[in-house]
């Protein structure tokens, strides 16, 4: 463990030569942020087409891409898509089903996350799935893995090719506040290692933590849910948020907490224009 600290601390010093983070989250508009964020990565990795950023580290490292492509020959998330489809088609005890909540079918990724002005909160797809269940007298599913992840895999698969398009509605102060809170979350240092999300995945993206190459933050939200070999199963975006926070030795927030929903809102907005390609496989 001691080695890790040294390695990461070294990286930290080197990585902070450039600082893009706005000091005050409210200083710039979402549209300006999107432009700044996207161009930061397209300039840093000039050979990588915008859509390729949906593939995480595999967009920038050929050696790991080779392994990934071999795994994509028969990706480990496939059985979960099938399970998700079965779940989607299995009626609730009251005879209704998910298609009664999602009237236009399972291809829903393009609609989430979004701001709900009435409820004054960011609504995510997992949240909507569990609210659908509860409205129909079913117990909510666990947020991080299991059946919910499988449902998301099916819905994600059906949504492949849809483009990320998170809108921060103009003139809605609540939406902007949620967005800015997510943005602050992304750029705020936390944990014993004192890292922000951006420390690793913006300033230090493309650099090594031991042998791992830090993936670019652009496109980070497109491929979910993800089968991580490290997990040996499928997990959700908020599971990974929690894992990242733990790795910098910070106390993670709860999945679907306001903090992570707002972070998802900001971060997904940063990937506007990039296609959803989940579910996907990572190391």
């Amino acid at each position: 463990m001691k080695k890790t600290v040294v390695a990461i601390a070294t990286l930290c010093v080197v990585g902070l030569s450039s600082t893009v983070a706005a000091k005050n989250a409210a200083d710039t508009t979402p549209a300006q942020d999107l432009e700044t964020y996207r161009s930061y990565f397209t300039k840093k990795f000039p050979g990588v087409p915008l859509q390729e950023f949906s593939n995480g580290v595999y967009a920038i490292d050929q050696i790991s891409r080779d392994s990934w492509e071999a795994i994509e020959e028969f990706p480990p998330y496939e059985p979960f898509i099938e399970e998700g489809e079965e779940l989607w088609n299995t009626p609730f005890a009251n005879g209704k089903g998910y298609s009664d909540c999602f009237k236009d079918g399972p291809a829903q990724r393009k609609n989430y996350p979004h701001w709900n002005a009435e409820r004054k909160m960011v609504i995510t797809l997992p949240l909507t799935i569990n609210e659908c269940r509860e409205a129909n007298g079913e117990k909510p599913l666990k947020w991080k893995k299991g059946k919910l992840a499988s449902l998301l895999a099916y819905m994600g698969y059906e949504s492949r090719g849809q483009k990320t398009n998170v809108v921060i509605p103009e003139g809605d102060a609540g939406a902007l506040t949620a967005y800015n809170e997510g943005k602050s979350q992304y750029f705020s240092r936390r944990g014993q290692l004192n890292f922000a999300c951006a420390s690793c995945h913006m300033q230090s993206s493309g650099m090594h933590v031991r042998t791992d190459i830090l993936s670019p933050g652009l496109g980070h939200t497109t491929g979910w849910p993800v089968y991580r070999s490290k997990w040996g199963n499928l997990g959700t975006l908020h599971r990974r948020f929690g894992g990242c926070n733990q790795q910098v030795r910070a106390k993670p927030f709860k999945a679907q907490s306001k903090e992570y929903r707002n972070l998802e809102y900001f971060l997904t907005h940063m990937s506007n224009g990039i296609e959803f390609n989940g579910p996907s496989a990572r190391k």
């Binding site: 028969f74 496939e78 059985p79 099938e82 399970e83 079965e86």
Partner: peptide, 8 residues
């Protein structure tokens, strides 16, 4: 998991 343990 899905009905069959094998995808083929």
């Amino acid at each position: 998991m899905a009905k069959s343990s094998i995808k083929l």
